[in-house]
């Protein structure tokens, strides 16, 4: 049965789009049929992170308004045949998205894919509420930083009240994905620790993505980090996270960025 998963955070710039691309690619790499849907109408970027920016012809709004068929708007990844993208519109504003339109597209996608990953825009406005509206599960992307944790808490409250599942008295399954984590700084007490974040948000941990140059490098070349450098610390962390989403029990590791020789030695030991 298809699963609709929203990648959300409230705060901008914490890594929603990067994480959507990486999780989507990792699921496809493990054989699942995946579509990633960009809900950031007016400020689309998922196409760019996936390296498909020059292949966008039709978008989500065109499908909602009946200008294009869903099959015309879906873009198949050139590297992963199981991965598809439904881009957002760059020119329209977010009001062009209607609840009924989103409902009908999600229902259609459910018949064609194993996973539907909705990349939410930042904020708590219409775009963000529509991205989470039909979700079965949610990944809340959080940085170890006070403003991000506060906004995540707010989003968790919305997931528990404004989704179709919540209105039916059911629960959206929620996971926190901690990104841009620097274990050395956390150990020195300069950064909120994993324990602090989990205690405050009180939802289960999906994974810890380390602060890493590989993440920027991957988005620079338009390739999800799990595909661009599958052996890198962030890629391994995303792949582990996806295995957990698929129901496997994977030991949680705090991935260490490998830099110099010293770090390399330490990294091997920690990993």
């Amino acid at each position: 049965m298809a699963k609709v998963l929203v990648v959300t955070s409230g705060k901008g710039g914490v890594g929603k789009t990067t994480s959507t691309a990486a999780l989507g690619a990792a699921l496809a790499q493990l054989g699942e049929k995946v579509v990633v849907v960009d809900f950031d109408v007016g400020l689309r970027n998922l196409d760019l992170v996936l390296g498909a920016e020059r292949r966008v012809v039709f978008d989500l709004i065109n499908v909602v308004q009946g200008v294009a068929k869903l099959s015309q708007a879906l873009i198949r990844d050139k590297r992963l045949e199981n991965l598809w993208l439904l881009p957002a519109s760059q020119t329209r504003d977010k009001d062009a998205l209607t609840e009924e339109g989103v409902r009908s597209i999600i229902a259609d996608l459910r018949t064609k894919f194993d996973w539907i990953l909705c990349d939410s825009p930042a904020g708590i406005e219409r775009g963000a509420t529509l991205a989470m509206r039909y979700a079965d599960e949610a990944v809340i992307v959080t940085n170890p930083e006070v403003s991000s944790v506060r906004d995540s808490d707010r989003i968790i409250g919305m997931l528990d009240s404004k989704t179709v599942k919540a209105e039916k008295g059911e629960r959206v399954e929620k996971h926190v994905l901690i990104t841009r984590y620097d274990s050395a700084r956390a150990a020195r007490g300069e950064m909120l620790s994993i324990e602090d974040i989990l205690e405050i948000l009180a939802i289960p941990l999906l994974g810890i993505i380390p602060e890493s140059q590989d993440v920027l490098r991957a988005s620079n070349v338009g390739s999800p980090v799990t595909l661009n450098n599958a052996a890198s610390a962030p890629a391994r962390a995303y792949i582990d996270a996806v295995r957990r989403l698929m129901g496997e029990t994977v030991t949680m590791m705090v991935p260490v960025e490998r830099k110099g020789l010293m770090n390399r030695l330490l990294g091997r030991r920690a990993a």
Partner: peptide, 9 residues
């Protein structure tokens, strides 16, 4: 000296 995380928490 730089442990601001407890304050943040």
């Amino acid at each position: 000296r730089n442990a601001s995380a407890p304050v943040a928490r």
